[in-house]
Write a protein that binds this DNA or RNA. Structure first.
Lengths: 298, 298
DNA sequence: CATAATGATTGAGCTCAACTAAATCATGAT
DNA sequence: ATCATGATTTAGTTGAGCTCAATCATTATG
């Protein structure tokens, strides 16, 4: 006979007793009511004691159940409070920022050294994901999101506009003249990501007349398109901010200087009141100073 | 971010901090040290805080870890104590008795109503099994065992002698005369359980001279033999105590009054000191009163 | 100094406790 | 009579928790 029953069952019991409802307990714990019912049944069986009287549509604690709950409520409260206190302390110095993998790879990570040097007391963690992460659920302090801005219940500031330019390797650009006509693109492989309208819009804006905008391989995301382009497969439309460093050091070339302004931009997004926390305010200020810098990271 | 980390990880942390050793914690929780290491790593990651300083071959709590442990130790102690108290109370009124399925079916269960009426405060649970159950491991309070008595480390009292009598259906008995000679059994099907010597011993004791004791179907246990006999397949040697009710109401007949005393008997077996517990003493007294009753249960 | 012992860590793979989905049941409300 | 509500149960699924074995970093011992 183990000293403690299933901790999961104890958690289910504590929540059900607090709510006097298995359905509400299930909601709180993000499981189904059936799971709660099973856990409590198993707990009663292992203890050999009835903890709840089942009534149609409601629960009542037995005498035994009420006494057990009094202690369990305290135990779980202690654990929650200790965990929250520890998290609070750790959160003073730990920031979690979420953005897309492309932005993290091309823009943010190359600049992180500068942030660490300026603010060594702040532990900045990057959560790179295409998924729209939830601030509370996922423990996110601040987000950089690509879109039109305006997210319900959240503060949003436009951080970084961007434009798309055709980018390729120097070897591929060498086959072009020093100021090539746009229609020379008809002889190159156009690399697409899933947003295939980008090339079409760019060619239209550039005044190309005999280039088939839909021709060429398609990749599932911008990173795939980037790597194919770096491998010399063709020419890709990239965000200028992502390839600033490579354009500067000549490992990539933008043979056509025309940029296509994007209606989408990068926005800094955070819960209301988040800036009252100094570390978040510091990060925000640093991000805005970075976007106004003209030199890419060393 | 959930309010509580993995409860399993909290348990691993509390045990490791108490022992300042993951190996000892693993032993206590009956898992491998690797499992503990992983759990604590995950806990530290989810909290964003280092809880232990790893030293070669030993652990030290960080300041954060020590504070967290102070609360967790209390929480887990509360849970253990509340669980033990509840189990103790439940054991005050819950008794678990183990015996064979045959004894449970034929002797004990038909009499249980009388026990419940006499002692409604005692919750008697029957664990019917052929397996020799362990008092501590299996949570058994008292046993009725079939054998010669004398079990090491346990108290044992002879409860119920028994004798074997040939039993069959009234229809089968009608084919016999009112006081049939024993050798009439040569014309009936003898039903055996795995202890095949029973019929041989009975026939010898009864003085039968031309009945083949080994002839007839064999069943793996007494219940199988009983059911075959009830179905009219033949005549079986049954313990008189098991079929008292059916003999009384005429649904079974014992055409040959000779009983074969068995060297095996039913013994009441319990750990030393168990009778200090009132509920066990009550059950024991009731069992002995039942065996001395001459009338079967209603 | 070399080797053995000790205890924590880690990666790959396994497994079963925890859970889901859906059907059912027992009311209570309309 | 029908619908709503909440608990229960069964059969099936799955990922958190775990194992195993190799590795690492000492420390102890001969």
């Amino acid at each position: 006979m183990d000293q403690l029953p299933s901790l999961s069952a104890l958690r289910a019991f504590e929540a059900s007793a607090r709510h006097l409802s298995m359905t509400l307990a299930a909601n709180e714990l993000h499981v189904t009511p059936g799971a709660i019912s099973l856990q409590i049944r198993d707990l009663e069986s292992s203890l050999g004691v009835r903890l709840f009287e089942r009534r149609p549509r409601s629960l009542a604690l037995t005498t035994d159940g009420a006494e057990y709950f009094a202690t369990m409520r305290t135990a779980f409260r202690l654990m929650r409070e200790a965990t929250a206190a520890l998290a609070m302390r750790s959160k003073d110095t730990v920031l979690t920022l979420t953005c897309t993998a492309g932005f993290a790879t091309h823009w943010l990570v190359p600049r992180l050294r500068r942030f660490e040097e300026a603010h060594p007391d702040i532990d900045l963690r990057i959560s790179a994901s295409h998924r729209m992460m939830d601030f509370h659920r996922d423990g996110i302090d601040i987000a950089i999101r690509h879109g039109l801005g305006g997210y319900e219940g959240l503060a949003s500031e436009r951080l970084l506009d961007d434009e798309y330019v055709p980018v390729c390797t120097p070897e591929m650009a060498a086959a072009l003249s020093s100021s090539p006509a746009v229609d020379a693109l008809a002889n190159l492989t156009l690399i697409h990501d899933v947003y295939r309208r980008d090339w079409e819009l760019w060619l239209q804006a550039a005044g190309a007349t005999c280039v088939d905008a839909m021709r060429g391989p398609v990749f599932t995301d911008g990173m795939g398109a980037y790597h194919a382009m770096k491998a010399g497969l063709g020419i890709a439309l990239m965000r200028r901010s992502f390839v600033e460093q490579e354009l500067a050091d000549g490992t990539l070339v933008a043979p056509f200087p025309i940029g296509l302004a994007s209606a989408f931009a990068y926005h800094l997004v955070y819960p209301p009141g988040a800036l009252e926390r100094p570390a978040i305010a510091t990060l925000r200020a640093w991000l805005f100073s970075e976007v106004s810098r003209t030199t890419p990271p060393a």
